[in-house]
Design a protein around this nucleic acid. Structure first.
Length: 794
DNA sequence: CAGTGAGCGAGCTTCCGCTTGACTT
């Protein structure tokens, strides 16, 4: 007979808690929500005060059955879901679905998973907060209304299977607007002046001193004039000032900051970070990884203090409490931290180790003393120029403090900085300096950076849009819908001018640099642009960056009992729904985003571009005319915003027949993967340097024959006894193909000489290796590689 | 990593937030 049943959200948490509570308590997990609006149906009865129609999803039925069974056996059921809006709703759904009795049900919450916190929670039970539950229902129902009313509008007006929502549509808007900002950006050039001086120290040794002119010159003439003046000038130390400078550590990790730092320091994608963190959480290494709180438990503070004292000494300790600044934070959990502060390192995969170390360092650093630096600023006067002076700065670390373990990484979008300065040589006021060289370099202003996954998460969090559990899924959704692609932008070559004064002569040279290259950045597709423009025009309220913040305020009022949730929804719906109706009713002549480019000279038919059933497409003629319109897909590098009439007409020149060879037709076309030639029953992608418009029959035949030959060589050997196995020749050399998988052949083995037995041996070997890598290598890693752990430190 | 290649007149598609599997890659 079970006395007590405790239900929490996460099974890992359940396991830990069960240990604290003894045998009178059984702890189970709800695995998040157990009930939701129906997946496929609207499920909201607007006419009856937005009554939601809930159902238990199929994959939760077995679990709910078990929970029911155990709840029936228990004297008391303790609903211990998280202390936030969603957690309260989970408790309420459990109460309803399990048909619990008020006198046998208690609602408890705890913020840290320690024995004392849990026992304390048991001592202070409360009842379910129905206002908070209503706030969640309002949130849920509003999101469903927005998503399920807006998406069908897009199906009608743009393209099927698209989607819109309170969070995803704003995420796309951010990326679209940034791209337009970049398109509108005009670079400006200015001359930056740096100088290299020589100062003699007490021993007569010469030391270099780098200095910069604070202002930049707008024109070359000004820069030249300045250098001309410097040619005859003498330089003297003006002011020397020394200022102390303190740096404080950042707060411990939340989901969003962990995603940002793991992207910058470890090169992880947002999804990757969450996957690795989940594994660390499940194996008990770190606390919960979906959190917006920067709070650390008393236990964590104490054990951090002990660890710092032991590893670095008392002076490095500084216990700090951090407060959450982000809008709408719900703080149901702690910050993300190691469960055991005594372990700077753990066993695990390479990725797990690296992420864990990052978390350990950030947590420890947050409890360490400020770094104390000393910044020296020296001005260097120029004879005969009152208004101009060079400035040299030097920074010396007096006490490293938290910098000993953790340095915040530079923002990827921060300008490249080369002001890395160390100690300045000893200098005296009035001291004259020899000038080695002065350089005026033409520099260009940079367009704002495109978003990375991580910087988009930061922006969304700043706007209070989305939650820790949805950042990664949102980013994947907007890419799946093809509103956004993640990709690289190659840099552009740019010439710049350098003037250099040296040995009394001014040289003038031109150099080139590659600039503006970006990696793994988010860029809008044509579909993204069209959908965004459409939504911002017809539903500006939903697409407003403040929409979420505004409705969140109302959800808070519901939670406080100041407003009824149905009232809030009425106000919203009465405004929103008519705009959906009128947008649908508006019989516009063409689809959203359609652009007419002109007419085809031959026929006089209209040429236009739009988002078609399969993406951006050019069209000649209009539907409803006698002749059916002709279509041609746009190339990857073209956009319906910028394509010209000529470029669009060019698209219709493919596919085109090149001629006949050996009685077979050879043609050139444009496919999903770029231009190709087709003949003899095979396809070959055209190499970049061959233009599909001017490719000749001879070139095409040559390519096709080469491919045929390679195809013939592809099969090296097969065995009658085992038809599934084959030795093949791929573009990376020979390999074994076996039951749909491929295995490499070690160097030095002649593939044609392999026997079936030795092939199967190779397959088995590589399968085992792969299996070992998959499992958590608790025992697999025998000898640690020593070279890898050494840190690169100055 | 191991090779792809069209269609543009009905089918169905979709939201945000909680939580992990059970499948192959």
């Amino acid at each position: 007979m079970q006395k007590n049943l405790v239900i929490v959200e996460s099974p890992a948490k359940a396991k830990t808690i069960e240990k604290f509570l003894g045998k009178d308590f059984k702890v189970m997990s709800s695995y998040g929500h157990i009930r939701d609006l129906k997946k496929k149906a609207f499920s909201i009865d607007i006419a009856h005060d937005f009554k939601p129609e809930y159902e238990i999803p199929a994959d939760k039925r077995a679990l709910v059955g078990q929970l029911k069974e155990e709840a029936a056996k228990a004297d008391t059921v303790w609903l211990a879901s998280d202390e936030d809006r969603e957690g309260e709703a989970i408790a309420w759904h459990l109460y309803e679905v399990l048909k619990l009795k008020p006198e046998h049900t208690k609602r408890i919450v705890f913020h840290e998973i320690t024995k004392s916190a849990i026992l304390n929670a048991i001592e202070h039970p409360r009842s379910i907060d129905l206002n908070l539950v209503d706030a969640q229902q309002a949130r849920r129902v509003l999101d469903r209304i927005v998503g399920f009313e807006l998406s069908p509008v897009l199906w009608r007006k743009v393209k099927p299977a698209l989607s819109a929502g309170r969070v995803q549509s704003v995420a796309v808007r951010l990326i679209v607007e940034r791209e337009r900002e970049i398109n509108a950006f005009r670079t400006e050039a200015a001359y930056r002046v740096t100088a290299l001086f020589l100062a003699s120290d007490a021993d007569g040794k010469q030391a270099e001193l780098k200095a910069e002119l604070p202002r930049r010159f707008k024109t070359k003439a000004e820069a030249q004039d300045f250098l001309e003046h410097c040619r005859a000038a003498r330089f003297r130390i003006g002011d020397i000032s020394t200022k102390p400078l303190r740096k404080s550590p950042s707060a411990p990790f939340t989901t969003s900051t962990l995603q940002q730092e793991a992207a910058r320091k470890l090169g992880f994608t947002v999804a990757q970070t969450m996957m690795v963190a989940q594994r660390l959480y499940e194996s008990g290494m770190i606390t919960y990884m979906r959190t917006d709180s920067v709070n650390l438990s008393e236990f964590a503070l104490n054990s951090s203090r002990e660890a710092i004292t032991r590893l670095m000494g008392e002076p490095y300790v500084c216990t700090r409490h951090f407060a959450t600044k982000t809008k709408g934070a719900q703080e149901a959990h702690e910050a993300i931290r190691p469960t055991n502060m005594d372990s700077p390192k753990i066993e695990g995969t390479h990725q797990e180790k690296r992420l864990y170390e990052l978390i350990w360092k950030r947590t420890i650093a947050s409890q360490m003393a400020d770094a104390v630096l000393e910044k020296t600023t020296v001005t260097i006067g120029i004879d005969g120029m009152k208004d101009e002076a060079f400035v040299a700065t030097g920074e010396v670390v007096k006490f490293d403090g938290f910098l000993r373990v953790y340095r915040d990484s530079m923002d990827d979008d921060a300008d490249l900085r080369d002001d890395e300065t160390g100690l300045l040589p000893p200098l005296k006021k009035g001291q004259e300096l020899a000038c080695n060289e002065i350089t005026a370099t033409e520099r260009f202003s940079q367009h704002p950076p495109r978003y990375t996954e991580a910087s988009l998460v930061r922006k969304l969090e700043e706007l209070g849009i989305g939650r820790p559990s949805t950042y990664a899924p949102t980013i994947s959704t907007i890419q799946q819908r093809e509103y956004v692609v993640k990709g690289d932008k190659p840099g552009e070559e740019r010439a710049y001018n350098v003037l250099c004064l040296r040995d009394g002569k001014i040289s003038d040279s031109t150099r080139t640099e590659t600039t503006g290259a970006e990696k793994a950045k988010l860029m809008p597709t044509d579909t993204g642009l069209v959908v965004n423009d459409f939504l911002t025009e017809y539903f500006p309220n939903i697409l407003d960056y403040n929409f979420t913040a505004t409705v969140e305020k109302q959800f808070d009022e519901i939670a406080e009992g100041e407003k009824k949730w149905t009232g809030v929804l009425h106000t919203f719906y009465d405004h929103f729904h008519p705009s959906v109706e009128s947008t649908l009713a508006a019989k516009s002549a063409h689809k959203a985003g359609e652009r007419v480019l002109g007419t085809e000279p031959k026929t006089g038919k209209q040429v236009s571009v739009k988002i078609g059933r399969f993406g951006p497409v050019a069209q000649i003629g209009a539907a409803g005319e006698d002749e059916k319109p002709r279509f041609a897909q746009l190339r990857k590098d073209q956009s319906i915003e910028t394509i010209t009439l000529e470029e669009a007409l060019d698209l219709f020149k493919l596919p085109r027949t090149l001629g006949e060879q050996d009685g077979q037709t050879v043609s050139v076309g444009a496919g999903r993967f770029g231009p190709y030639v087709h003949g003899f029953g095979i396809y070959v992608t055209l190499p970049k340097e061959i233009d599909p418009m001017s490719v000749t029959l001879e070139q095409a035949v040559e390519l096709l024959k080469a491919k045929q030959e390679a195809e013939a060589k592809r099969h090296i050997k097969r065995f009658d006894e085992e038809p599934d196995l084959e030795i093949m020749n791929g573009r990376y050399g020979p390999y074994i193909s076996y039951q749909g998988n491929n295995y490499k052949i070690p160097a030095g083995i002649e593939p044609a000489d392999l026997s079936l037995a030795s092939c199967l041996e190779l397959v088995k070997l590589q399968e085992e290796k792969a299996a070992a890598r998959k499992k958590r290598p608790a025992r697999a890693a025998k000898a640690e590689k020593p070279a890898k752990t050494a840190k690169a430190k100055k």
